[in-house]
Nucleic acid binder design. Structure first.
Length: 223
DNA sequence: AACTTATCCAACCGCCGCTAC
DNA sequence: AGTAGCGGCGGTTGGATAAGT
């Protein structure tokens, strides 16, 4: 492995600690659990291996397709992509991409070179496209205040009961404006409906939740 | 069977943004 | 304003194992 492998004993201690004290406060976990590991190692071990409902094994075809699509939209935002794949971790997705998909897609790209258009990773200029909802929410505010509100909204994620899923308010018009600006709406909105996105959006399984507001948020972050 | 090469994936590292002081 | 501490993320490393010669 790329470091010192975790023992069963360490796993047990970490699990026990998380069960007792909950997630977060990772800087205290090594002490509380009695582990000779740094906070990052503990966090990573929990998120990638010990956390309940982690799906292991091969990726299903639908999962692979979703990874490809989301990667087109989001680039190497593995945690965001993994957030749409119930039970999958960012590390899993990243590894799978590096091992399988990057090669496959590179080969495909090489094949298609010259014929098809390149798909550009979205890096939206959210400051401009979000104007409609900003107006609604912040009429009478100064321009600077609006910008500040928008910027702060990017990191104003909340989490549902089990602390795993990001929940944001829907901002459908913003997303469509954004996607439209990127020329993505027509290409992807249909795919989302046709290929199992509905189920994922509803958070089937582990409760992961997709919504358009989330997507905008994700893209918004990509500045 | 022995050796080499390729692949997989858990773990580590360095950086970033946020917050509190 | 500066800085230390934190959680979090993406990139990289390297050991284990499979596949090829």
């Amino acid at each position: 492995m790329g470091g010192v492998a975790w023992t069963e004993e360490e796993d047990h201690l970490l699990k026990k600690c998380i069960q007792q004290y909950g997630e977060g406060k990772w800087h205290r976990v090594p002490l509380l659990a009695g582990l000779n590991r740094c906070r990052k190692s503990c966090r990573l071990r929990w998120l990638n291996y010990l956390r309940p409902n982690i799906k292991r094994g091969n990726f299903a075809e639908e999962e692979v397709e979703m990874i490809i699509k989301l990667h087109k939209l989001l680039g190497n935002r593995w945690s965001l992509i993994a957030g749409r794949l119930p039970g999958r971790t960012a590390n899993d997705v990243k590894n799978y991409w590096n091992c399988h998909l990057s090669k496959r897609l590179n080969a495909q790209e090489a094949e298609e070179k010259g014929g098809s258009r390149d798909v550009e990773v979205i890096r939206p200029q959210a400051r401009n496209i979000g104007s409609s909802s900003v107006k609604r929410r912040g009429e009478g505010e100064s321009e600077r205040e609006k910008v500040v509100e928008q910027e702060s909204s990017m990191s104003s994620l909340t989490y549902d009961a089990d602390g795993q899923n990001q929940v944001v308010e829907s901002q459908e018009d913003n997303i469509y404006a954004c996607l439209d600006q990127q020329g993505i709406v027509n290409e992807y909105s249909m795919d989302f409906q046709l290929e199992g996105f509905e189920d994922v959006m509803k958070g089937e399984g582990s409760g992961n939740q997709w919504d358009w507001g989330d997507l905008l948020l994700d893209m918004d972050l990509y500045k």
